[in-house]
């Protein structure tokens, strides 16, 4: 028993050590159309030059309910079924940044912490004492501070940038899991149905078993 308590105490202590390391800012994700559309807007301006979203096509954006005019501005003369590939070729990317910028289609699901990670990363830029740009969440990042977070000292401006980052994350979360809303909606029906069915099975079970003496 003593050994058991000892192990449990050790487990708890190491768990706390792990929790202290993470410095992600937890966000409540907005999944409504306006937030996602604002996020798409911000992303097309700030991120899309270098980052692709190869699993998302312009048609997906229209189907989701985004403003058709806006979508046609983004795609120019490309067909509606074109994927959101970046304009930066891999060779140029490697020349300028040393790596190919990751595809963003699944980024909101591909990091520990999900959307909160991406948000914390975007707002995590700061100026180091040496005058360089650093990032709290991902110090090795090669991405420049596109939103200008590190230079923003005014609280109002910072709040604006944070709202923008939040919108971008909303869009990325939708892009990573476009059927989420449909899934939740169907889920309520399925579980509601199962609750009724199970309750009925319980009644029938009791009724059948009551035949036994």
């Amino acid at each position: 028993m003593k050994k058991l308590i000892f192990i449990l105490v050790l487990c708890c202590s190491s768990f706390h050590a792990g929790a202290a390391e993470s410095k992600l800012e937890q966000i409540q994700l907005e999944t409504d159309l306006p937030a996602v559309e604002r996020g798409a807007d911000a992303l097309m301006n700030a991120c899309h030059t270098c980052h692709s979203l190869k699993y998302i096509t312009y048609r997906d954006l229209v189907k989701f309910g985004m403003d058709k005019k806006k979508v046609s501005d983004w795609r120019g003369d490309q067909p509606l079924d074109t994927a959101l590939t970046s304009q930066l070729s891999d060779e140029t990317a490697i020349q300028s940044y040393g790596i190919v910028p990751p595809d963003l289609s699944l980024i909101a699901k591909a990091r520990e912490g999900g959307p909160s990670y991406v948000y914390s990363y975007l707002i995590g830029y700061y100026i180091t004492p040496e005058g360089m740009t650093g990032n709290h969440v991902f110090p090795e990042t090669r991405m420049p501070d596109m939103m200008g977070m590190s230079g923003a000292t005014d609280p109002v401006q910072r709040a604006e940038l944070q709202a923008k980052a939040r919108d971008i994350v909303s869009f990325l979360a939708w892009a990573a899991d476009p059927h989420e809303e449909e899934r939740h909606k169907l889920g309520y029906y399925v579980i509601g149905y199962l609750l009724v069915l199970t309750a009925m099975l319980f009644v029938v079970k009791n009724q059948i078993w009551s035949r036994l003496k």
Binding site: V190, I191, L194, T198, L201, F202, V204, K205, W209
Partner: peptide, 15 residues
Amino acid sequence: IKDFYGLGIFLIVYC
């Protein structure tokens, strides 16, 4: 019937 009732409970958790 007992198995089906158990299945209902299982499916709720699963779903």
